[in-house]
Design a binder for these strands. Structure first.
Lengths: 219, 219
DNA sequence: GACTTTTTGTACCGTATCGCATAGAAATGA
DNA sequence: TCATTTCTATGCGATACGGTACAAAAAGTC
């Protein structure tokens, strides 16, 4: 039987007594997850060994195992964390009823900031870079991956619909389909960032994408 | 010292004598490469073991090693083969000076046929699915990956330029930038196919992309 | 201070993996 | 017939991998 850690017994909060009982952990779970995510991000799920994760997080393997479960469970947790991050970024960028061009620009800008960061070079989107390869063999990963893509689509869709209601966008445009093309621009930015394209080229493509997405009638 | 196989001594042809000297090989190199590529395609580079490659190709490990070198060399060969395939498909789809809409449609259609094939479900683009994850750690893979992306961009670019010369496309459109957005549609098709989206949804998105790419002015 | 609880650190286990060495098999040429 | 060449088959050895047992360590509790 696997011993559950204290953080799982009282999720998101300290135990009622306020003081935890045993030896204090020498790491911060959230920070460790972020480090683990960075390791997966660079090399992919399969190519990242437990030793690498151990080195990246500063935790030794038993601690890793106790805190997050086995390698796959840890990976799923990093995926979940990334999706939460992405959700927040989308909400932040698309909220506030801004003009369509500005909303799209904010999304692409904040995405590029993430895609271009990384110690060992630009890494692109974590979901696209690491979950996609595993998506055939691992159905759960595929579902999370697909959900991540569609979450972005949905965010863009409400954005386009609102713009249409404000008259910023032609009435015959299908906001759902247009949203999928807006995602396409983000997808290409992720792929190109990982291929090593320069920031200026990516920003130019984002700008061109915005221009196209905000104009043109459908069909 | 690594023994070179006969197929490397006389690339692309039989030896001058017409008859090879020793025991004939029990496999066809091209067919084996295709099988190996399929294995990498499903699971990714790192998650594909030599045993899996051996099972997929029907060759045992020493034969694999003798014919293609180690795992990485074999992977690079499958990459090269896929790029050749892609080049041919692009040339075939974009050649012939067809109307812009038709050219784009042919590219997307032939790409979808590849992306949706696969024994264990739709796999998307081989480059995007398998090379991208390795692109950070392996510079050579990254270069091949980037070259593959740019090859597509270039193909689209000449396509758009020709369409512009024929007056099918507004004169103020930058064909190079527009080509990168045409690639973006292909990128999203690859990512979405691997996520399990249905053919109809992908075809609809391709059609919407074509409509947008053929209209709209730049900036 | 002894006991309990929780985490850490070391060391280990069984297995999978990669690459290769070596021997055998199949075809040709002399 | 026999040597030569080339591929195939078995299987070995070193390493790396994922995962875990166990005892020491650090804190609270009585």
């Amino acid at each position: 039987m696997v011993q559950k850690s204290a953080s799982q017994k009282w999720p998101g909060a300290n135990p009622p007594s306020g003081k935890k009982r045993g030896r204090p952990r020498g790491y911060e779970p959230d920070a460790a997850l972020t480090k683990a995510r960075a390791a997966f991000w660079d090399a992919g799920y399969s190519a990242t060994s437990l030793d690498a994760l151990s080195a990246a997080t500063g935790m030794n393997r038993p601690s890793l195992y106790g805190a997050f479960g086995d390698k796959r469970a840890l990976y799923l947790k990093t995926l979940e964390g990334y999706r939460a991050l992405g959700r927040a970024a989308i909400a932040e960028a698309l909220g506030g009823d801004r003009p369509l061009r500005e909303s799209l620009g904010r999304v692409y800008r904040s995405a590029l900031a993430i895609y271009l960061s990384g110690e060992h070079g630009a890494r692109g989107c974590f979901l696209i870079g690491t979950a996609a390869p595993e998506a055939i063999a691992d159905k759960e990963v595929r579902d999370i991956y697909a959900a991540g893509l569609h979450e972005l689509d949905d965010g863009f869709a409400v954005c386009f619909r609102r713009a249409q209601e404000r008259g910023e966008l032609a009435a015959d445009v299908d906001p759902v389909e247009r949203a999928r093309l807006a995602s396409a621009v983000l997808h290409t930015l992720s792929l190109r960032a990982r291929a090593g394209e320069k920031r200026e080229a990516l920003e130019r493509t984002a700008a061109q994408g915005i221009a196209l997405l905000c104009g043109g009638a459908s069909v």
